[in-house]
Design a protein around this nucleic acid. Structure first.
Length: 572
DNA sequence: GCCGTTTTCGGCCCGACTGTTTTCAGTCG
């Protein structure tokens, strides 16, 4: 069995092994290819079958051959040979913080050390003392890195929704307490990647030392790792790393662009600049010694002949070409949202909860909401909101707001007891009725939305593909956002490219700083979604048309949610 | 090993910081 993730790991390790051999440019070439493969929305096997491997950025003749060999045989002979040449323990060594390929190689060549255990013993035996380039501090640094590595994996990337509150707290502290004028978070957080390895915070300040003081005194900060003139690195409790950089106002745009990345995007930008006789760094865009841009990101891109590119697209996946043609898509934004088809109440909600939801929808100026009135539990039994609450839903009127009722069911599994709910459309969730549970024979309401779909793409790309295909066949939207039950940005891109609309959770009833919607928007934007690609950014009219794509098989008849008579008239 | 509105060969982002140096190499992002 082959997988993209497996191929990525092979190419990453090849890069590390080549690093250890002292190769200059090959390692980056293999890493580049690995990053590209990681962000693919389909299996390498499918790309290979179409003979399109070379269209993957960073994949040329040699890497194409290795991918094909991997797909055929499950292994790569070049990789196997490198592993025989170089002790695998050296890769572990060079991955220790503060150590790199050069140092690991010196241990191997000069001291015969082939792995972490041997290095630990060598340090204990004093064999490093007196070796050129290894002073007391360096040896101590290595010793503690070894101890940390032995204690288990260090700080790993964290889900972006967990990082939101941390980012917010630090940004607030810098704004209010540190005299910082502009404050922005860059890095993969700003690009809305699913996971974030560290935070890069940029500020302008007339008093940098004060910014550093306030920052390192923040209650979340456990340890100051490093402080220079313009940059400070701290570790939070739990080991999460945050970098603070203080820049001049005239550099702010260039610095934000630079520290937002991605690496591949920046490399492309730099070579584009070089071709035009310009130089880009974090201080600005320069022609010789003259700064031609730097205060804003728009200036930086414009000086290179490019339209501004939303951070979520900066992955070198064709966005620079789009920006050169002035064809960057207008990605969906919060202000585009016009409703929510998936509003949950608690199962025992009282009628006044309905009024609360409606008030919130009005406050957001939404045109429609779909409220879940019942569904099917894992054991196959149905549940419904209390009768009085359902009655309130049916009778409540709110000018300009259409209220529809949804039932959560399996793809075809509608429990008989949920029949009486009187619903407008179904939300399909991954469940099936156990044998013996009576299934409704009535014509079910159409499926307009697929939700609660387990979607960690890395773990089961095939399952995501099946759900996207089912959503497409039902002409239903599919939910995108944080958490294991929603599609991530890679799966969202796959859905969008298959012509499936995305649905964003708008977090009814949540606290003002709840990150769910922001993260969902970020994922949708990473997937390249414009308002037209998002079900709940469409007008009520268009949403009512959700069932007008490829026809459902079986029992599907009407569109969902049903159009109001006036909507039908307008559409006609 | 990849790549090309100057190139199919000759480039490949670039600056901050640390430690160990006495002018710089290695690592990191």
């Amino acid at each position: 069995m082959t997988s993209n993730a497996d191929a990525v790991e092979i190419f990453r390790t090849i890069a590390d092994l080549l690093d250890l051999l002292g190769e200059k440019f090959k390692p980056e070439a293999y890493r580049r290819a690995a990053r590209s493969i990681e962000s693919l929305t389909e299996d390498l096997g499918a790309v290979s079958a179409r003979h399109e491997l070379r269209s993957i950025p960073g994949v040329g003749e040699a890497i194409e051959e290795k991918i094909d060999e991997y797909l055929r045989t499950g292994s790569v002979s070049y990789y196997e040979r490198l592993k025989r040449e170089i002790p695998p323990g050296l890769v572990e060594l060079m991955r220790l913080p503060g150590l790199g390929p050069k140092t690991a190689r010196r241990f191997w060549v000069e001291l015969g050390i082939e792995g972490p255990n041997e290095l630990r013993d060598a340090i204990a035996a004093g064999r490093l003392a007196g070796v050129k380039g290894f002073g007391e501090k360096k040896i101590e640094q290595i010793r503690s890195a070894l101890v940390a590595a032995a204690a288990g994996p260090g700080a790993t990337r964290r889900p972006i929704e967990e990082v939101y509150p941390v980012a917010r707290a630090l940004v607030d502290a810098l704004r209010t307490g540190a005299g910082a004028e502009r404050v922005e978070v860059g890095g993969s957080f700003r690009r809305a990647r699913e996971t974030v390895g560290d935070l890069d915070i940029l500020v302008t300040s007339k008093d940098p030392p004060r910014a550093f003081e306030v920052f390192s005194a923040h209650p979340l900060v456990a340890e100051v790792k490093m402080r220079g003139e313009t940059k400070e690195t701290v570790l939070l409790t739990g080991g999460f790393q945050v970098d603070l950089r203080v820049v001049q106002p005239e550099e702010f745009g260039a610095a934000l662009q630079y520290f937002t990345g991605s690496k591949d995007h920046n490399v492309r930008l730099r070579s584009l600049a070089r071709d035009r006789g310009l130089k880009v760094n974090e201080y600005g865009v320069f022609r010789g010694d003259e700064r031609v841009a730097g205060a804003t990101e728009e200036d930086v891109y414009a000086s290179l002949g490019l339209a501004w590119i939303p951070p979520e697209l900066r992955e070198d996946r064709g966005e620079i070409e789009l920006a050169a043609r002035g064809a960057v898509p207008s990605l969906v934004a919060e202000s585009d949202l016009r409703g929510d088809l998936h509003v949950h109440l608690t199962a025992d909600a009282r009628p006044d909860e309905v009024d609360r939801i409606v008030a919130e929808a009005r406050q957001r100026a939404y045109a429609y909401i779909g409220v879940v009135v019942g569904g099917v539990r894992a054991d196959g039994t149905g549940w419904l909101l209390p009768a009085a609450t359902r009655a309130r839903l049916s009778e409540i009127r709110s000018p300009g707001l259409r209220i529809t009722r949804a039932l959560e069911t399996g793809l075809s599994a509608v429990p008989k007891e949920a029949e009486s709910a009187g619903v407008d459309f179904r939300i399909v969730v991954p469940t099936s009725l156990p044998s013996g549970v009576p299934e409704s024979q009535a014509d079910p309401a159409p499926a307009a939305l697929f939700a609660h779909i387990g979607s960690s793409v890395a773990s089961d790309a095939a399952a995501v593909k099946r759900w996207v295909e089912e959503a497409r066949r039902n002409a239903a939207a599919i939910e995108v956002g944080p958490g294991p039950e929603r599609l991530d940005s890679t799966a969202a891109r796959q859905a969008r490219e298959s012509g499936v609309l995305l649905h964003l959770p708008t977090a009814f009833g949540a606290a003002a700083d709840d990150p769910t919607l922001r993260v969902a928007l970020g994922f949708a934007r990473r997937a390249g979604a414009t308002p037209k690609d998002v079900a709940n950014a469409r007008s009520q009219n268009e949403v009512s048309d959700a069932g007008s794509g490829p026809k459902r098989g079986r029992k599907g008849t009407s569109n969902a949610p049903p159009r109001s008579p006036s909507a039908k008239k307008r559409a006609a």
